[in-house]
Simulated scan of single mutants.
Amino acid sequence: MTVTPFPELKIRDVHEADRPRERLIRQGAQSLSNQELLAILLRTGTKQESVLALANKVLTNFEKLHALKHATLEEIVVIKGIGEAKAVQLLAAIELGRRLAQKETDSRFTIRSPDDAASFLMPEMTSLTQEHFVCLFLNVKNQVLHKQTIFVGSLNASIVHPREIFREAVKRSAASIICAHNHPSGVPTPSPEDIDVTSRLFEAGQIIGVDLLDHVIIGDHQFISMKEKGYF
């Protein structure tokens, strides 16, 4: 993680041309570091430290920038110098960014391969701290009609019931489905429960006429296609 070396400076002590807001206006947002972008959102520091130092504390507290995606109000306000108002500003910006990214991804995305399915799902699922079982409902052109989280929790056959999934598939007039779930451990190796659930869903899809194209297991920026691995 790159941090701009301004920790002890007040913004007024930084040359005007080098201040984050001025640099954004002049050079564009992409030219700013994570610290500088956070500083703009936080707007002001405290009597004891600059806004740049405060932004640095936020980054240090969450270790990785993407960890902020799942930060709660309570987790942010424990950082000294961050009150409720600043925490709300950060959470609003994070949520807006998430929605923009998801909206772009969801615009009739076409899935032609396991890589496409993983690319569609991984930005949202790779850093989740609990298992999420998600289904993509596709039309005859393999375009995503709908994405739905079926349940959150440890995967087992009694929870993931084909009835709930294929009821939604019929409702959406889906021609096929792709299932996915994440492993919070970061290792996407299929468990016996993963294999059992996949087999039951494949068999149910064959009976109903809605094909299970794949079951993708997502780890830490890696994935396994159970179709490619020959599990069904």
Rank of each mutant, 00 (worst) to 15 (best):
Val3Ile: 15
Thr4Leu: 11
Thr4Trp: 09
Pro5Ser: 13
Pro7Gly: 04
Lys10Met: 14
Glu16Leu: 14
Asp18Gly: 01
Pro20Asp: 08
Pro20Asn: 08
Arg23His: 07
Ser31Met: 05
Gln35Asp: 04
Gln35Val: 06
Thr44Met: 09
Ser50Leu: 04
Ala53Tyr: 05
Ala53Met: 11
Ala55Ile: 02
Ala55Asp: 02
Asn56Glu: 15
Asn56Phe: 00
Val58Lys: 03
Asn61His: 15
Lys64Pro: 01
His66Gln: 14
Ala67His: 15
Lys69Glu: 15
Val78Ile: 15
Val78Ala: 04
Ile79Gly: 12
Gly81Tyr: 07
Ile82Trp: 11
Ala85Leu: 12
Gln89Phe: 05
Leu90Glu: 05
Leu91Phe: 09
Ala93Asn: 13
Glu95His: 13
Arg99Leu: 13
Gln102Thr: 07
Thr105Glu: 01
Arg108Phe: 03
Ile111Lys: 04
Arg112Asp: 05
Arg112Leu: 07
Pro114His: 05
Met122Gly: 00
Thr126Val: 12
Thr126Met: 12
Thr129Pro: 00
His132Phe: 06
Phe133Pro: 00
Leu136His: 02
Leu138Asn: 03
Gly153Ala: 12
Ser154Met: 07
Asn156Cys: 05
Arg163Lys: 15
Ile165Arg: 02
Arg167Glu: 13
Ala169Val: 10
Ala169Ser: 14
Val170Gly: 00
Ala175Lys: 14
Ser176Lys: 10
Ile178Gly: 03
Ala180Trp: 02
Ala180Phe: 03
Ala180Val: 01
His181Cys: 02
His183Asn: 03
His183Ile: 01
Pro184Ile: 05
Pro184Gly: 10
Ser185Gly: 10
Gly186Gln: 10
Thr189Pro: 00
Pro190Phe: 12
Val197Trp: 02
Thr198Arg: 11
Thr198Ser: 11
Thr198Met: 08
Thr198Pro: 01
Ser199Ala: 15
Ser199Leu: 14
Leu201Gln: 03
Ile208Val: 15
Ile208Asn: 10
Asp211Glu: 15
Asp211Tyr: 09
Asp220Ser: 11
Ile224Pro: 02
Met226Ser: 12
Met226Lys: 07
Lys227Val: 08
Phe232Ala: 11
